[in-house]
Amino acid sequence: MLMIYMQQQQQYVTTNHDDGHSLLLKLSENDPLFHKKKKLLQLLGISPDECIHLKAPYTAVVLNSVLDQLLQKARIMTFNEVDLYFDATDVIQLVKFNNPRNELEALHSVLLLIDNSILSAKHLRVDVLQDLREMILDKINALGNKIRQDTVLAQNVSCDKETCLLQWGEGAGVQTKLDIAYVEGAGRGAIARENLKAGDIALEIPVTVIISEEAVHKSDMFPILEKFEGITSETMLLLWSMKEKHNRDSNFKFYFDALPAVFNTGLSFGVDALLELDGTLLLEEIVQAKEHLRSQYDELFPALYHDHPDIFPPDLYTWEHFLWACELWYSNSMKVVFPDERFQTCLVPVAGFLNHSVCLNFASVVVIFNPVYNLKLPT
């Protein structure tokens, strides 16, 4: 079985003194964006390794000041690559509220630091840390209430395909406390069926539901692809999904039926959108990515469907279908660690409805082997 857990990218250091506490949110060198974040912190005059001291008098003003300092640092430390790409132009704004995802992760990061401080405190002023903890929880609750008020479910959008996928998943052993819905202004996503507390398991998925290399190895195309020089397992999976999408007898039919016909990534931007990006680095990156993918496609086709038209039907392996499959894997895949300790890039039906990343700064979604549990997503 597999279990998904949240892997922290920060380190928490607490030093307790008779006259107060020294609190340190330390950016982990294992963070893939370590150097970019360190540079931003230094530009803002925030030392990556400097403690924030909590000393008497423990007034509300002092506690608010300490919390603000911790949050300013935590917001930078919990930035993801998209935040850094689009938001890092305004350096002053970086230490302020940026987006709900970043704010919630920053607050949770500070909360974990305070919890660690409470556990390690060896004198009687734990009550001060408890007060600070309550202030953080108040901010988390206030943010949650605002998000809840701003969330409006679209009433005129059908979720029949998503409902069928959930029913198929539950029949295959998926256990979920989530439903799928369309949110106005945000699109499709998962919503809770009931109130969930931090640490509750929202979703459990058995290994048999995961789309991994094993699917390709069992297919009729694998004996051909394994002889194709230089081809990667990820490319094999991409080619497999192009065909499996149209297989009416597929075990994953309900999953492919629920996928969008068009993904809203830069690879599928229309002419008008590209014109808006004229002169930007993003446009250059999109052009380079499409050129790379086109080169990859040309290495595979028409050779594969000329030599093996029964396995690679030309109508299923067009450039447009190839691009769709690329966007599917780029936007929905997760990294999975299997029992042999190898990472595999996989598709995880149902879990794909959740906002996720294989490289979040505060919490990376990592899948590990566990002999007892199914694949689980905690809240």
Rank of each mutant, 00 (worst) to 15 (best):
K376I: 11
K253V: 15
S364A: 15
V152E: 05
L2H: 11
Y330W: 09
L2S: 06
I205H: 00
K139G: 01
A172V: 05
P32R: 14
M242C: 14
G20S: 09
I201W: 09
A74H: 00
D49S: 06
Q7S: 12
Q288W: 09
Y297H: 01
K243I: 12
L283N: 07
G199T: 09
L225N: 00
E194Q: 02
P57C: 05
V82C: 04
V91T: 00
Q93T: 02
D138K: 02
L23A: 05
E134G: 07
N64R: 03
E276P: 06
Q296Y: 03
Y85A: 11
C346K: 01
Q175G: 03
I92S: 01
L94N: 05
N80R: 10
G352R: 09
D315K: 14
I46W: 03
S219N: 01
Q288E: 07
N374T: 04
I136R: 07
E244Y: 05
V348E: 05
V348S: 08
L377N: 07
V207G: 08
L237V: 06
I4E: 13
E327N: 10
Q175A: 07
E229P: 07
D310T: 09
V95M: 06
A351Q: 00
M6F: 15
N251D: 07
L111P: 02
K161I: 10
T235H: 12
H306R: 13
F263P: 02
E234M: 14
I52R: 06
E105S: 08
P57S: 01
P223H: 06
Q7W: 12
K36A: 11
T208W: 06
S158Y: 11
C359A: 14
E276F: 05
K26R: 04
Q344M: 11
V110D: 04
K243R: 15
H35A: 15
A303P: 08
T78W: 07
D310N: 09
H321V: 08
Y317K: 07
E284V: 12
D115E: 15
E194A: 03
L40I: 08
E341C: 11
V95F: 03
I46Y: 05
V271M: 06
L274G: 01
Y85F: 13
T280S: 07
C51K: 13
R148P: 02
E226Y: 01
D278I: 04
K39W: 12
L377S: 11
L143H: 01
P314T: 08
E214K: 07
E226G: 02
H17F: 15
A186W: 08
I210H: 03
R133F: 13
L137I: 05
Q130N: 14
H108A: 06
D131P: 04
K177A: 02
G266R: 09
L360P: 03
T59L: 08
L84V: 02
L132C: 08
E184T: 04
